[in-house]
Design a protein around this nucleic acid. Structure first.
Lengths: 198, 198
DNA sequence: GAATCTTCGACCATTTTGTTCTGATAATTT
DNA sequence: AAATTATCAGAACAAAATGGTCGAAGATTC
């Protein structure tokens, strides 16, 4: 009873590693079984299908991302740093949680309903966070913002657009440097002139 | 006629990348075809089988390794540096030519005859090079060596033994640092006392 | 030792995949 | 331009791989 959930987590971790390496399609149940040192059919005692395992992995990674992000936001005070941290952590964590990343972007996985669910849920959550960050920044007169709702949407759209080229040319240049450059641009369009970083 | 060989090379390069990512087993002819933007069956105009493509890839990588090694040896003069470079380049190049590396070590590929052929051929070549390096070092009184044949064999055996743990724990520590440490040990057992690095 | 939880191997239906075959089209030669 | 050859792609196929099922057999608990 108790152990069952515990073992589910083990499966999720192990499966997450293998999925991230080979993708959903190329990962076989036999492989998962071997990695877990158990018979293939035993896995079905814990999960109903390969898809369900994948879903659990994605969900787990989505939660990790959320945790990382909220932690990153709380770790600093100034609105600028909050946004900066948010973008940074978002990009860097995406790199690690490649299952989640692929689930969001891989067109081959489109037909999984739960991915669409997660996708939109993640979008809504992110938008809410961004709106809050921007709203606070505007309140403290650090950001010049007319409508935080629209600005948040704009920032989110920009971030989404950035992901693709950011990951496509992953090895070409230092991720941090590129991110910093992008953030500079972002802030020079948002930050008030002569704003102090209080 | 001429173009055919040229296109074969293209296939080898493209296939090499995909094989290195997914391994021989998980790579499908369809994938190779898509990467080459041609029909799956068209590939069979250039190669007789998937196995033959793999063989060509391995052979190509083996040649690259050989080139890198000879270049590395020629680039320095002192026997110590030659051996040092040899080991370094051998290990670092192995990392990139992962098809070759996997072909040599992956037990799932044991049943391919040509791998055994390459394996032993590579062994012989390497032994000859090492023997030469050591012989020269002994001649210049930098190495204390009784029988360069046996010493070369000993060094080769040591290198082989090192590969496995070196790659198994790839991410744990800096490869260069570990290699340097190992080389230190190797040389302190081989280099004459008060030897000058001429 | 009955009842329940957990694992496994054998088996199955379906899909995937390496390969072949046939023919179409482009290139080259005669 | 006819004939030959080189190059390619789609359909078809046999064999292999794979996700999933089922009943039985170990464990574990009561």
């Amino acid at each position: 009873m108790v152990d069952k959930d515990e073992f589910r987590k083990k499966i999720i971790i192990s499966a997450g590693q293998i999925f991230s390496r080979y993708g959903f399609r190329k990962t076989t149940m036999d492989e998962l079984a071997k990695a877990l040192k158990m018979g293939k059919s035993s896995i079905y005692y814990y999960f109903k299908s390969k898809e369900e395992i994948f879903e659990a992995v994605i969900l787990s990674e989505a939660n990790m991302l959320r945790n990382e992000l909220t932690k990153a936001i709380k770790s600093v005070d100034s609105p600028i740093d909050k946004v900066k941290n948010y973008v940074f952590v978002r990009m860097k964590t995406f790199e690690k949680l490649s299952n989640y990343y692929n689930a969001i972007f891989d067109k081959n996985l489109d037909h999984f309903d739960f991915i669409e669910t997660i996708r939109s849920k993640y979008d809504r959550e992110e938008l809410a966070i961004l709106r809050l960050l921007i709203y606070h920044g505007a309140r403290e007169k650090v950001f010049r913002v007319v409508n935080s709702e629209y600005t948040a949407l704009a920032v989110q759209t920009a971030l989404k657009g950035l992901e693709v080229p950011l990951f496509w040319k992953k090895r070409e240049m230092d991720l941090e440097k590129r991110l910093n450059a992008i953030l500079d641009v972002l802030f020079y369009g948002i930050v008030r002139k002569q704003a102090s970083e209080a």
